[in-house]
Design a protein around this nucleic acid. Structure first.
Lengths: 184, 184
DNA sequence: CCTCGTTGTGTACGGTTGTTCCTATGACTG
DNA sequence: CAGTCATAGGAACAACCGTACACAACGAGG
């Protein structure tokens, strides 16, 4: 007769942070529709009530999670753009960002799509995507004029979505060629 | 004391079709997450049991709805491409398709995003999006080489998504310019 | 007119959800 | 060392979900 696993975890500082990360994990591998209070609580191994204690609502928790993710990705991307000495290097860095960071890890890719979907309905989350888009464009504008930056940004968005949903993803060479045609 | 509205609607041929359309409406203005049996039944003004009578499951109903929508949009687009005499006209038709058909009616735009989201998790629906993408590419290939067609398709996808989520959508001129740069 | 099979209807069930609430705990403050 | 209060914990609730199912109403064929 196994006791249902005593849980001697009083005083858990940083639990709030951990919940945000766990929520992101759940969204990444089960989708935003499956990211319920209970699913996240189970994944983080905390009682259900803990979630509503730390976050007023599920939406608030998801917003915090997506915000953290966007911050990470946007900072990484801006770092790449900042490091590029010129336009050509920036384009190459963009290709690497796409093929390496985004398309390489299906996690980031899935999170991007899930965020877009959720944002379509939830104003709170829409603010997060808009922030992402504007930061992304600002990073691109380090080496591209605003008009081209916007076009490239849209193309990148489409490439990401296509890669997420298509059976035969584009190769890095194809991606480079498309970007070069648009901004080369 | 108002009687709860007698419903004298026995023998309603074509109800199955009407349910598909209504499901599409509900998805368009409340999102796929809100497209429940009950919501659709209410919108179509039919009893709840009618849905499970006509469709084995909710997924099957949604798949039928999205399939109908994709058929409509894809056929309309192919018609445009077929009517274009040359490459330049095709590009202009594409701009019109985007700014008129898709971006003009937020309904089509929202449906596209919802479908993509739902498809990310549901294999049945993924088949529908893949069908859409391949039909769209095939239409483009009437006037573009396959590589360019693919790039244009990805750009279009990104433009649609950006327009759906952004606060200041791109103008037709900006869209034409981006497409021309890529495929002109 | 009567039967029979198809179609339509209403209700009920088992399960899951977000959220609330009461209690218990233990780290900090005085 | 006593008391306080933010945090932790778990049970409970009402709402909603997809689906099943038994029954009612019809149209067609005899």
């Amino acid at each position: 007769m196994s006791v249902p696993a005593r849980r001697p975890r009083r005083h858990d500082p940083g639990r709030r942070d951990r919940l945000v990360d766990t929520a992101l994990d759940v969204v990444a591998d089960q989708g935003v529709a499956a990211a319920t209070h209970r699913a996240i609580a189970r994944a983080a191994d905390v009682p259900l009530g803990s979630l509503t204690y730390h976050f007023a609502s599920l939406t608030e928790l998801l917003a915090a999670a997506f915000t953290r993710h966007v911050d990470t990705v946007a900072a990484r991307f801006d770092e790449r753009m900042r490091a590029a000495p010129d336009r050509a290097a920036a384009l190459e860095a963009l290709v690497e960002h796409l093929t390496g960071d985004l398309l390489g890890s299906s996690r980031d890719l899935v999170l991007a799509v899930e965020l877009h979907v959720a944002a379509a309905r939830d104003p709170t989350l829409r603010a997060v995507t808009q922030d992402w888009m504007s930061r992304s464009r600002r990073s691109l504008e380090r080496h591209l004029d605003p008009v081209t930056a916007r076009e490239v940004d849209a193309l990148v968005e489409g490439l990401v979505l296509h890669s997420a949903l298509s059976t035969d993803p584009m190769t890095p060479d194809q991606i480079r060629s498309a970007l070069t045609r648009l901004a080369g």
